[in-house]
Amino acid sequence: MISWLYLGVAVLFEIAVAFSAGNAQGFTRLWWTIATLVSGAIATFFLSLALLEFDVGVGYSIWTSVAGVGIVILGAVFFQERLNLRKLSGIAMVIGGVIGLRLSGAA
């Protein structure tokens, strides 16, 4: 169960990576570039803790996909990006898949 917590922390910092990299403008802005690298290091470390338990394909896919969902939801909440039916169905597939994996005993 602790490995799911590690994965959750890794997801939060992966969202920070996407946000910082987006603001770093091709890594020409120093502080956003540093933020990208630091959050990437933390995300990677927590991913590595989770992968002690998870199979790499399963842990990695949950990590990157749930981060993707988080990015879209944050975009809708804070940056007024539209949530349409397609985005919602993609979010539902990711969440449904994670629940399915959990129930089928992937760590």
């Binding site: 896919s61 996909s65 539902a92 898949g97 089928s104």
Partner: peptide, 12 residues
């Protein structure tokens, strides 16, 4: 379920 997740994130 892995395939569902991957398809979901690509779609998203």
């Amino acid at each position: 379920w892995l395939a569902v997740i991957i398809a979901g994130v690509i779609w998203l």
